[in-house]
Design a protein around this nucleic acid. Sequence first.
DNA 1: TTGTACGCGTTATCAG
DNA 2: CTGATAACGCGTACAA
Lengths: 348, 348
Amino acid sequence: MKRKITLKQIARELDVSISTVSKALKNSKEISADTIQKVQAFAKLYNYRPNNIALSLKNRKTNTIGIIIPEIVHHFFSKVIRGVELVANKRGYNVIIGLSNESFSKEVINMEMLANGSIDGFILSMSKETLLQQDYHHYNETMNQGMPIVMFDRVVSDIKCDKVIVDDFNGAKNAVQKLISNQCNHIALITTKDYVSVGRLRTQGYLEALEENKITPQAELILKMDDTLDYEVHLEALEAEIEQLFKAHKNIDGVFAVNELYALSAMKVARRLGLNVPDDIQVIGFTDGVLSKHSTPSLTTVSQHAQLMGERAADLLIDKIETDFDTEEEQFQTVVINTELVERESTK
Amino acid sequence: MKRKITLKQIARELDVSISTVSKALKNSKEISADTIQKVQAFAKLYNYRPNNIALSLKNRKTNTIGIIIPEIVHHFFSKVIRGVELVANKRGYNVIIGLSNESFSKEVINMEMLANGSIDGFILSMSKETLLQQDYHHYNETMNQGMPIVMFDRVVSDIKCDKVIVDDFNGAKNAVQKLISNQCNHIALITTKDYVSVGRLRTQGYLEALEENKITPQAELILKMDDTLDYEVHLEALEAEIEQLFKAHKNIDGVFAVNELYALSAMKVARRLGLNVPDDIQVIGFTDGVLSKHSTPSLTTVSQHAQLMGERAADLLIDKIETDFDTEEEQFQTVVINTELVERESTK
DNA sequence: TTGTACGCGTTATCAG
DNA sequence: CTGATAACGCGTACAA
């Protein structure tokens, strides 16, 4: 087992100074062709590579970006990561991940660990708990130390930083418009409680579409689920509620759900009640997941372009990292990613 | 914007030496209570945190582990990551990810980037291309430099390192045994080409179960798909093949598929041909995915316990990292994770 | 053409 | 009780 070789070892071996080795490896013209040749041959033989940590310390730059997400076993977030990784690698950066597991304290701890020199900047999506507590001091402290942050998807306007978000409002509005154009008159909404901004915006989009079409929204057609509960429990409760809803309002002919599982639950309940999708009820979900594509019938969805969000976030962050702010005033931008309605079998 | 504070700045500010500050922060009894108090107060005020990079350089230890996987938008791999992250964080390590995207060269490049000081060890699963080319020099070189590697899932015996694998053979055997116990006599196998070891082992398990039950395997009931193709194309071809298979062998009453999508495709084709699952055909898949749980009918699967694999891999790696090998001889172990048959609606 | 000295931030050792 | 020094590995301005 041969340890990684360093400049110092090469220097000792070849009986030259460390800096000569360093320069020779960079083909500096200060060094004689002879020495260069000798050093490079030796370096290649022993497979010399500069130590990243030493470079990071010296340059005060790690070429690593940190990404903190609430959950990784989730198609949306893993697609975002892929986008980040793609761009980061292309631009010479590594990606280090931290999971908050939807917990405020884990988010803080993770950020503190990474902020102490390990990375050059953050890409993150807020945990539900943080969203609930509305305590954003850790973001501001991090940014005050000169560490840039780009937030995506779950965002609040109180925090001044670059952001990448989905056009939740118009995505929802277009989806509901689609249902209306498809002759749906009684469209139910299955959403989450309002504290997650994306849920709120999608609800607004739903309402707006109805109003534009002179349809009076009915509160009874709106189901607001508490998604802080365990998923299994939550889904069972959801199905029961949907069943009740469908039974109480037999004229429901369309459903817009703010995520994939809600939409699937709606289809499941519909089937159980002997209703055909899309003939009796048309369903649209909001997601980037796999379930939609492979469900029966396959689900029409509003695609969020998660990977693109990751790519844009990474580009924004790296741009910021590599910009020198002594010259110009710092400016934050919010990139809005347009959604796309992917039509499948659950709509006509 | 106040930059992160360092020992040097505290020292200058308080007019003491750097080493005094360092010691005071560690409550060294060499330092007077007075000074300790003063230094710690100042440090707290300015929220001093030691710089990880400097510590890494000094200690020659990064407290970071690298994980390299072929793909992250994949439930199995993201669950593994979650397991790794869980254990790593608990034991004081960060996780840095690299995606090989199933490509040999990206795997090599990623490993080289991380191996130059950024991490203390690797957890990885081989890319398909590496498996095909059977070129393992980068693994061996990395280990020769004293950087430990733990491989999981996709593994080859030629490489001497710690491994975490699923008991593919028995998982498959038990699944097929289940079908046989459920009165299936003509069981089809949908698998991948043999170069991925897990596919091979699952095929062997299938054959073994048949033989133990005195059922003669029929080559015509075995579909070997080439999964190096693009998924969409591949799945369409697969469905066509399955349809042909079902039509040619109307007596097929069971299907064992080595992954989730293959199993779902089988169910889809069955439905299209007017066959009922599980009444006419029972189906079992091999996976940890979400599709199984939410498909209709939901799919009976062999669970791989992906998260547990990640946890075990992380523990193995960190144990190795933290063991001093001057004392004892290095030993490699292979942890085998038992599978579990999760029974759902696609079997009786 | 080559080598010395310094600094990145930290800690350990040793001297005062 | 406090401070100077060296070391981790590298790159570079400056000196020889």
